[in-house]
Design a protein around this nucleic acid. Structure first.
Length: 375
RNA sequence: GCGAAGUUGGUGAAGUGGUUAACACACUAGAUUGUGGCUCUAGCAUGCGUGGGUUCGAUUCCCACACUUCGCC
């Protein structure tokens, strides 16, 4: 079934929107944070645990599932939902980010991108058409166009050529898309340049996608200022009635600033990756449970949190698990960190409802970056 | 009691008559934004068993003592 989206309310002080997604007879609200499950699993969490932290859409990755187990296998299983036993909406990345992170410039051509299969060394060609076909085989609900994601530090000229190529690729992908059961998103690129974001957004919107992504952000150590410009310059030209998705964004402050600039959905590996490295997001900032000061701290990770980890376990115990490389530690912290971000978006939605998003931001920042939690 | 070998940071250990005692693990702290869980960065012995001697200079050479391990009574 196709996912439906509608905007319920616009906030009075900012560009923020409160929205609703209907999927599989379930209702979800935006702004939303989406955990990443690259290989058909949000690392260490079961689908039941995802539901328990009030997670909605999750991500999966075309490139990884294409290589293993193969999209044909997932299709034979009845699609990714059945394969991984998850009945919520699934969004798939197109492999575009892997163009950025894995391919060398010489491997990128008009036809597509040549990858070396990291598992066995095979040479593989991923094209816009192929990417869409794989995503349809996977049974994705929200499909991404295959884009080129250049570093933020790239020159204006390079970024312009990249934007134009991404638009040509978007058109090819749209033509290949069957449109049966999924939404197809176009991707806006253009770094932090107002003219390029405008060009990219307007030309992509002309192709009439079901939603729009903002790509090329949070890479290459760009400044936050540039990231926020990229948000604003992109959403300015996007239709009001379609979902807007900031790709790869997940620091709490970046989510808030994105919402303020009209972004609806965000994804990020950070809650689960930070968890595996022993870090926890808390109301009073990010803490590192590897730090010696938590050795005998028998209080919860965040005493304002309602998650399974905070309700049942202490910092000292989770620290011990992390130090001992026990996977249960990573699981507890992943549950907590994802819950922290889904709770953040719940609070953001409430603030939009009350037209108090800027006040909420100030209060959040005061707690998160202000007086450090020393106890 | 006699003989042999050996004593370097939390651990395993390298090393040299002369500025900053290698490396690894552990530990301490930091990084991580469309995920390899990989990883990366930085810190970590003012001192080389104790005392004395030789020397311009000793962790390194010599002597004594202490301790450890092994062998023999």
């Amino acid at each position: 079934m196709k996912l439906k989206f509608e905007v319920l309310k616009k906030e009075s002080q900012t560009q923020a929107r409160l929205g609703k997604i209907i999927y599989n007879n379930q209702e979800y609200q935006t702004p939303m944070f989406m955990p990443v499950g690259t290989q058909g699993t949000v690392k260490t969490l079961s689908p039941e645990e995802l539901k328990a932290v009030n997670s909605g859409i999750i991500l999966a990755n075309t490139y990884h599932l294409w290589l293993r187990p193969g999209d044909e296998t997932v299709k034979a299983a009845g699609g990714l939902h059945k394969f991984m036993n998850y009945d919520g909406p699934i969004l798939t990345d197109s492999g575009g980010f892997q163009v950025f992170s894995l391919a060398k410039p010489k491997d990128i051509s008009e036809e597509g991108v040549i990858f070396k299969n990291q598992l066995n060394g095979d040479k593989l060609l991923l094209t816009p058409e192929k990417s869409i076909a794989i995503q349809e085989n996977l049974g994705s609900d929200i499909i991404m166009s295959f884009d080129e994601c250049p570093p933020a530090s790239a020159s204006h000229e390079y970024l312009k050529q990249s934007v134009l190529r991404t638009i040509r690729w978007a058109k090819r992908g749209k033509d290949a898309f069957t449109g049966k059961n999924a939404l197809l998103f176009g991707i806006v690129q253009g770094g932090a340049y107002a003219d390029l974001r405008k060009l990219s957004a307007l030309e992509t919107v002309k192709l009439n996608f079901d939603g729009y992504s903002i790509g090329g952000v949070a890479n290459d150590h760009e400044s936050k200022e540039d990231m926020y410009k990229a948000f604003a310059y992109s959403t300015k030209y996007l239709p009001e009635d379609k979902l807007r998705y900031a790709m790869g964004i997940g620091e709490p402050i970046d989510i808030i600033e994105g919402v303020i600039r009209g972004v609806d959905i965000f994804d990020c590996v950070s809650p689960t990756r930070l968890a595996r490295h022993g870090h926890a997001l808390t109301k009073y900032g990010k803490i590192n449970l590897k730090n010696a000061k938590y050795k005998q701290d028998f209080t919860p990770v965040d005493d304002t949190c309602d998650c399974y980890a905070c309700q049942n376990y202490t910092k000292a115990y989770i620290k011990h698990l992390i130090n001992s490389e026990e996977t249960f530690g990573a699981r507890l912290l992943s549950i907590h960190n994802i819950r922290f971000l889904t709770k953040l978006t719940e609070d953001i939605r409430l603030a939009i409802q009350e037209d108090k998003l800027l006040e909420f931001k100030d209060e959040f920042l005061q707690n998160y970056y202000g007086v450090k939690n020393e106890k």
